[in-house]
Simulated scan of single mutants.
Amino acid sequence: MNTPITVQYKIKALIEKVWNALTDQNEMTSWYFDIQDFELEVGKVFNFYEPGGENKFHHQCEILEIIPNQKLKHTWSYPDFSDQKTIVTWELSSENNETLVKLTHEDIENFKDLGDGFSRLSFTGGWNAILGQSLKGHLEN
């Protein structure tokens, strides 16, 4: 069952502002993760850990596709636990001075052997919190 996780929210902000939040290193720190080595360029790899300073989960991603103000696609992996990768795609569309943000996380089954913290349920909850609370709250306040 290779059904992607799809999460989407309407955010009361112009598409350019949402794109900036997704792609500007300083903006990301305010709502997402502190990603020191992020560069908006296809082929660039970036790394980060979960917030809180425990550094248990090393995330590594590689940018696969960029369409400014429309799409950011990158891999998502945990190199300390597995050589498997998944794909995360952020898609933006404008609707009446609001932005629909659609996140798709594909191939989540690649992490099925890593435990409950890497389950479909866990990722779905995480993405809903990241988009529906963190990003939406950051941009609408």
Rank of each mutant, 00 (worst) to 15 (best):
V7M: 04
I15T: 11
N141C: 05
G53K: 00
L72M: 09
E98H: 13
T104H: 00
G137F: 03
S119H: 02
L40Y: 04
S94A: 11
M1N: 13
T89H: 04
F118D: 02
N110V: 05
Q36L: 06
W76P: 11
F33C: 07
M28L: 14
L114I: 08
E98N: 15
G126T: 09
K71L: 14
M28V: 01
E98T: 12
K12H: 10
I35R: 12
I66F: 05
F33G: 03
G137V: 06
Q60M: 14
L131N: 08
K102S: 15
K71H: 01
K17A: 09
D107A: 13
F38W: 12
L40E: 05
T75N: 05
E140P: 03
D113N: 13
V45F: 00
N47A: 00
S94F: 02
N55V: 00
E39S: 14
P68L: 00
Q84V: 06
D83V: 12
G137A: 03
K56D: 12
W19Q: 13
N141W: 04
F46P: 06
N96Q: 13
P51W: 02
D34P: 00
E106Q: 15
Q25N: 08
V45D: 03
F46L: 11
N110I: 01
D80C: 03
K102N: 15
D116T: 03
Q84G: 09
A21G: 08
L139D: 10
I5T: 08
D24M: 01
I11D: 10
N47Q: 08
E98W: 13
L114W: 01
L100K: 15
E109P: 01
P4R: 08
G125W: 01
G115K: 07
L14I: 03
T6Y: 02
E41D: 02
T6K: 13
D24N: 15
L121M: 01
N47P: 01
D24S: 14
T23I: 08
F48K: 02
S77R: 12
D34S: 11
F57W: 09
T86A: 15
K56A: 05
T75H: 07
P4T: 09
N128M: 06
S122W: 04
T75D: 04
K136D: 09
E91N: 15
D116V: 04
E91Y: 03
Q70D: 07
H59P: 04
